[in-house]
Every structure is written in C-alpha cells, then in structure tokens.
Nucleic acid binder design. Structure first.
Lengths: 131, 131
DNA sequence: CCTTGCTTCTATAGTGACTGGAGATTGTAC
DNA sequence: GTACAATCTCCAGTCACTATAGAAGCAAGG
C-alpha cells in the first residue's frame, strides 16, 4: 500500500501522514526502490489510533504516551486511565467556559435591535465588558 | 502612561501589546525622546475592546472588522450583528461537538476497570473507534 | 558620580498541529 | 511518446501569541 491508499483508508491527508512520520508518531515505512513509502495493515491501525486520539482531542504528546503504553500489554492500565481522566476534566472545563461564552454572545445579539452603530449593543458590550 | 502601566490596566502582557501594535490592532503610539511608547485613555479603551473581543472568542480579523465598524457611528449595525451571529453559531456548533466528545470520553473511562493494558477499554476505544 | 535594579527597546525564534506550494521524479494509461 | 497522476523533498505559512537575548533608559540610594 502506498501513501495515497493509506490516506484514503484513514481519511488523512498525505501531507499529514508525512508529518506524523516526521514527528515520530508513525514508524518510518519501508521504501520501494524509487523511494516511495509502503505501508501494511498495522500502519493503517496505528494511524487510525492516532486519528481517533486526535478526534477525541488528545494532544500529540498524549497520543505518543498512549501508543507507548499500548505496546506494553502486560502493564497496569492506570496510566492510560490517568491520561484519559485528565483529558476528560479538561474537556469538561472547556465546555463550561464555552457555555458561558455562548450565553454572553446570545445576550449581546438579543439586546441589539439593528440600529446605528452608535447605539449598537454588540459593539457596546464588547467595549464595556469587565474582564 | 507607559507600556507597563497599560499592561497592568488591561491585564495584557507587554509583549502582547507590542504584538497587537505590530499587526495593526492598536495605533502606533507617540514615543518619548528615548523611544518609549506612551499611551492615553483611548488606548486603554481600545485595548480593552480587543481583549474583550478575544475573551469572547472573536478572531483577530473579526475584531479588526468590529473596530472599523465602531469607528463609523452613523452606519447601520447589521454587519456587526452578522459577525456576532456567525460567531455565536460557531460557538454553538463547537459546544455540541465538545459535549459529544465528553460523552465518549466519559464512557471510555467508565468502562475501564483498571486491568492490564491488554484489556484496557480506553486503549481499545481509541484503537477501534470508527471515525 | 556610580551602581543597582527595574522598565523598556528591537529583533528573532518557538509553540501546536498541521497545511500548502515549488519543483523534481516516478509510474501508468493511451 | 506523451499526458497525467502520484509521489518525493524541502521550506514557508497559519493563528495568536510567548519567550529569549542583548542593549539602552531611568529613578533612587550611597
């Protein structure tokens, strides 16, 4: 399998695959005589792991750790749990912030009745809000 | 007022103030004979506008537009409303995504009962999830 | 006058996670 | 033979800052 097929199989851009290889998230693949990268099933699995991790919002460094953990099947999985829990807590905090933001934005939009800029509630809200 | 005082007055790092000037969000200030920046009340107001806008999640470009609009008090504020509404919609979409993410992460953590990595639900969930 | 120590200056590079483009090869189908 | 797609490497750009180095300015105390 060449890079284009891996790209299609994992819905990942070719440039991103090369980038992941560069930063060590993917192993350096075997090359053809002319230098093209060739991949096998385990590369698809690995890349899917990375993509799913990213989709769940884990950082590259967290994914690196999770990959390292996954390669030691005998170990206790407490560390993997810790990474996931920390991330969940971060997501929950961000959710709270974002909900507060939405309320503020919604209030701004509601109050404005499309008059002149001089009276615009949106502009006023941004200008006057206490941090 | 020098840059340090503006920094304290707006809870903005000195380097960030210089950065905002560089990209044209703040006017180039008058300098003292020795080259130090000096600011007045309107600079505090402008920077607060920028900071509040950022805190509400507007991009630098959106804030640039809002500043331009705010400087034409006679205009209809429909355009400002449009920027705010688009942003609100984006925030709401992100909120939905993030909530879905939280649910997935919570389910992962719940299912894992701290055994060996080989059986770890967290690792398995990341490995097997369909995009 | 001199030193100490803080503030400010410019210029440059780094962050995270990619994305895009230039310019050169290679592989394939007609 | 030639057109075209796929791939290669290398490097720059994105966003919104943040940090560092090294130089200069400025006020207060000795």
């Amino acid at each position: 399998m060449q890079i284009g097929e891996l790209s299609r199989a994992t819905a990942t851009k070719v440039t991103t695959i090369r980038f992941y290889e560069e930063i060590g998230l993917l192993d350096r693949p075997v090359r053809t005589a002319s230098g093209r990268r060739t991949y096998a099933l385990r590369d698809v699995e690995r890349l899917n792991f990375v993509r799913n991790g990213r989709r769940l919002g884990f950082s590259i460094d967290e994914i690196r750790s999770l990959i390292a953990l996954a390669s030691e099947p005998g170990r206790d999985c407490g560390e993997a749990m810790a990474i996931a829990s920390r991330h969940l807590a971060a997501v929950e905090e961000r959710l709270g912030q974002l909900a507060a933001l939405r309320d503020e934005l919604a209030a701004m939009s509601r109050n404005c009745d499309r008059q002149r800029i001089a009276d615009c509630r949106v502009i006023q809200a941004i200008a006057r809000q206490a941090a």
